[in-house]
């Protein structure tokens, strides 16, 4: 099996889906001639032409809204926001339109749409370019929110996102593009809304996704050297949320640490912790711990920025508090 980067996995999924289905097309800022600001669509403009690889002006509102409209009319758009920070400008198009059209008109309309957006901090881009706002978008029924942690999942989930008849926000953590992993040849799909156990263990359950999953796995390896076996569950999809593997793991370990890159308050960790106590209260042996971004905007200066973000040491410390 080939070991490829997540960038390559995403590129392959997009290319293969465009060959498979003529209705699939890409639109966004610098997706064409430039080749994508994160080079995910490099070469697509020459391969598919300007009809199917469409450079847009810097106009996030209409990028989001026009993609919804094109999807309503039967196309399968993949609209790219240069970063998820700019998706805030298209917030109305995403939550009021993409997420509501099917329901609000009694099922008459369908929005088979993928909104791709790189996100995450840690790259010294300052406060407005470093958000991990995944939970905000995951708040709204009607939208599916996906964020993969490995090249295998990235390719399979992107295929699923393109093929579903529902709108999907596909969040790619920008620090994961270079992560390598095994990806098989051929047409496989990773279903949306299915969490996945990425590492088995019996002492503590670590729940994570995206870049946090990579941090959690590294922490788990270090903990193993100290005799603590962590089970790591990858959410992969934030909405619809699949709690079954989390609860199953918790019933075995009785302890949980939730790792997310977003801010702690009102976050993924808050939701998972609430769900565990609601549905797994009898198994609870210790407080549920959260490792998340500090409650401050992300600063530019490297060390200061890193101090606000999640890391392996913070995860290890949280585990040791309860194990």
């Amino acid at each position: 099996m080939a070991r490829i980067t997540m960038r390559q996995a995403l590129t392959d999924a997009l290319r293969e889906e465009m060959h498979r289905d003529e209705r699939v097309f890409i639109m966004g800022e610098e997706v064409g001639v430039w080749g994508g600001t994160y080079a995910v669509t490099r070469g697509f403009y020459d391969e598919f032409g300007p009809r199917r690889v469409r450079d847009t002006p810097i106009s996030e509102m209409v990028i989001g809204g026009a993609a919804v409209g094109a999807a309503m009319a039967g196309l399968r758009p993949i609209a790219e926001f240069m970063t998820i920070n700019f998706a805030f400008v298209a917030f109305d198009a995403i939550v009021n339109h993409a997420a509501k059209m099917h329901y609000m008109f009694g099922g008459q309309m369908r929005v088979p749409l993928v909104l791709r957006a790189p996100g995450g901090g840690g790259r010294q881009l300052g406060a407005t370019h470093s958000h991990t706002p995944d939970v905000i978008f995951a708040h709204f029924p009607g939208l599916k929110v996906v964020s993969p942690s490995t090249p295998y999942d990235a390719k399979g989930l992107l295929r699923a996102a393109i093929r579903t008849d529902d709108p999907v926000l596909f969040i790619e953590h920008a620090t994961l593009y270079q992560v390598r992993g095994e990806v098989p040849e051929g047409d496989y799909v990773v279903p949306i809304g299915v969490s996945d156990v990425k590492r088995e263990g019996s002492d503590v359950t670590i729940v994570a996704y995206a870049q946090g999953l990579q941090v959690a796995l590294e922490a788990a390896e270090k903990l193993a050297k100290e005799g603590i076996e962590a089970e790591v569950v990858d959410l992969r999809t934030l909405r619809p949320l699949d709690m079954a593997p989390v609860l199953k793991s918790f019933q075995k370990t009785f302890k949980a640490v939730i790792v997310e890159e977003g801010h702690r308050s009102y976050g993924i960790g808050a939701e998972i912790a609430a769900r565990i106590q609601e549905e797994g209260f009898d198994y609870m042996d210790a407080p549920i711990k959260r490792v998340a971004q500090e409650e401050a905007p992300l600063p530019y200066s490297r060390e200061l920025e890193q101090s606000a973000l999640i890391n392996v040491d913070k995860v290890i410390a949280a585990v040791k508090e309860i194990v």
Partner: peptide
């Protein structure tokens, strides 16, 4: 913006 997308289709 939805109209723009319908026209695009």
């Amino acid at each position: 913006s939805l109209a723009t997308g319908l026209a695009l289709a």
